[in-house]
Amino acid sequence: MRTLQGVRNLDKLLEFAPLLGRGVLVTVGVAVLALVLATALGALGAAAKLSRNLIFNWVAQVYTTIVRGVPDLVLILLIYFGGQRLLNTVVQSFDGGYVEISKFWAGVISIGFIYGAYLTETFRGAYMTVPKGQAEAAKSMGMRPLPVLWTVLLPQIMRFALPGYGNVWMVLVKSTAVVSVIGLEDLVGLADKAGKATRAPFLFFVAVILVYLAITWVSQLALKYADERANRGQTA
């Protein structure tokens, strides 16, 4: 009797498999776009923290402090519901129409916002690891500031930031799971709904766990490869 129930549940999982596949795409989509946003915010944040402008310092500080203080799920709920109110107020004051923050973009913005703060620290740390003499030497050879940054510093910052960057990606992917709480139909959201609707949540959640483990595993392989490539020619 029990095995029979197990087999029936497997049927349900197979029935929903194409839908869950779509959910995986949404999960990866949110994660990748959030990483892009986080990278941009991280670069801006690091630049602001390293700059001599006190206002920039302060803004970056407030940013990283808020992220450090508030749980991801709370921030997502705030951005999805409160952010819409804010946006409506702003748009209406411009006599505009209506612009919606969809669940997908609420997820991307929230997660990108959160991990941008972590990348701020990663990038700042990587910048400070590059020996000062290198920039000075490049300048003394008559290079202008932008080429110094672009051709001398950036390649090294990227190399030093790579382990931290990879780490943030791994955390970020798992963080996308909480976007399901605002009803996004990512892998977790769909598995949750389907599992509860079919009254067979166990198998659906086990499937989700396996997919995340696969994502983690592939990411680790890719990072290892990238790390080896970035450090080729370096003595250990």
Partner: peptide
């Protein structure tokens, strides 16, 4: 390697 949310769901609703 997996989200805490899913671990919690699995233990609460799954089991």
């Amino acid at each position: 390697g997996t989200p805490l949310l899913v671990q919690t769901y699995l233990i609460y609703y799954g089991l």
